[in-house]
């Protein structure tokens, strides 16, 4: 079973948030309520892009207590493989789509005395749901949100109007930077740190926290990797006895699915471990892009995460 049950939804609203971001609202096509979710959860949106089926994960940013609709925000990626472009160009109110049950790989640690959140750009979205959840239970939080400039800082004005004491904004164009060291220094014991944003920011926050002696368990991050494009390659699926071609802009997981072979997944972004696949035989080089396998496993040639990783070479045989 992949992805759990699908939920048929209708797009009921498309809003242009700024020049890069659009917001989409989904309601159940049968008029019922959507499942409740927890702050930080995502849904996988299935797109029928003229013959290509795309499955992209997006953080749910509506109030988790509101089950009448889900909203997501999509940042247009002109260099990407086309999922965000499809959402921006083709998805209109009234369209029927299907989404997965919510999955949370970036949950709040409910034991925390305080939640310290650091967001960069579109990385603000999972925090929207988390903040709604925390403010409903009077949870203690603080958000530090960095963006290029006010025009591109989605939802910044709403957030700071609603939570003036907890929300702090930083704009690159004004040379404003988060004083991370100083920020981490004063936090009471039991604080949990959350970061979502560009790769560089996540690494900066995690490394700074580690050097300041923060325990690994108190630092949480979420980074969805878009599957990178690359040279086409051929794969033999041993269990289903099929030979498939992986296209330039297609992930290995998508190619497996396109061949009608059921493969498990949750995040489709290299972090949850669900799609881990055994390599039976290979002659060539793996291009591992996931956060799941260890360095030894990457070097070992026995495992691959087909959602984001690729292969270059003569032969690749997988246990699928």
């Amino acid at each position: 079973m992949s992805g759990g049950g699908k939920i048929p939804v209708t797009v009921t609203e498309v809003v242009r948030v700024n020049e890069l971001i659009k917001r989409f609202k989904f309601e159940r096509s049968d008029g019922g309520l959507l499942p409740t979710f927890s702050g930080g959860a995502h849904t996988v949106v299935e797109m029928q892009d003229y013959g290509t089926s795309r499955l992209n994960p997006y953080s749910l940013m509506s109030d988790p207590a509101d089950t009448s609709a889900y909203t997501i925000s999509v940042r247009r990626d002109d260099e990407g493989r086309g999922g965000s472009l499809f959402m921006h160009r083709h998805v209109r109110p009234g369209m029927e789509m299907s989404i997965s049950n919510p999955v949370n790989l970036f949950p709040l640690d409910l034991r925390a005395r305080k939640h310290l959140m650091i967001a960069g750009g579109i990385g603000i979205t999972p925090f929207m749901g988390q903040i709604a959840q925390l403010s409903a239970i009077s949870g203690r939080f603080e958000l530090h949100y960095a963006a290029r400039n006010p025009a591109l800082a989605a939802y910044a004005s709403e957030l700071s109007a609603r939570y003036p004491r907890q929300v702090h904004l930083y704009f690159d164009d004004y040379d404003q930077r988060i004083d991370l060291q100083g920020l981490l220094d004063g936090q009471p014991l039991g604080t949990h740190l959350y970061v979502c944003g560009p790769k560089g920011m996540i690494a900066w926050v995690r490394n700074t926290a580690e050097a300041a002696g923060w325990p690994r368990e108190a630092v949480h991050h979420e980074e969805f990797l878009a599957p990178p494009s690359g040279k086409p390659f051929e794969v033999k699926l041993a269990v289903s006895n099929k030979v498939i071609q992986v296209g330039e802009h297609q992930s290995l997981l998508e190619a497996i699915e396109a061949a009608g072979v059921d493969a498990p997944y949750l995040c489709r972004g290299g972090c949850c471990g669900q799609c881990e696949t055994d390599v039976i035989d290979y002659d060539g080089t793996f291009l591992h892009n996931d956060h799941w396998l260890s360095e030894e496993q990457h070097a070992g040639g026995k495992k691959i995460m087909p959602c984001v990783s690729r292969f270059e070479g003569k032969t690749l045989v997988l246990d699928r």
Binding site: M1, G4, G5, P35, F37, N101, P102, V103, L266, G273
Partner: peptide, 11 residues
């Protein structure tokens, strides 16, 4: 444990 960690809502 690996199986249980991945149990999803509705399944």
């Amino acid at each position: 444990l690996k199986f249980l960690l991945n149990i999803r809502q509705g399944s």
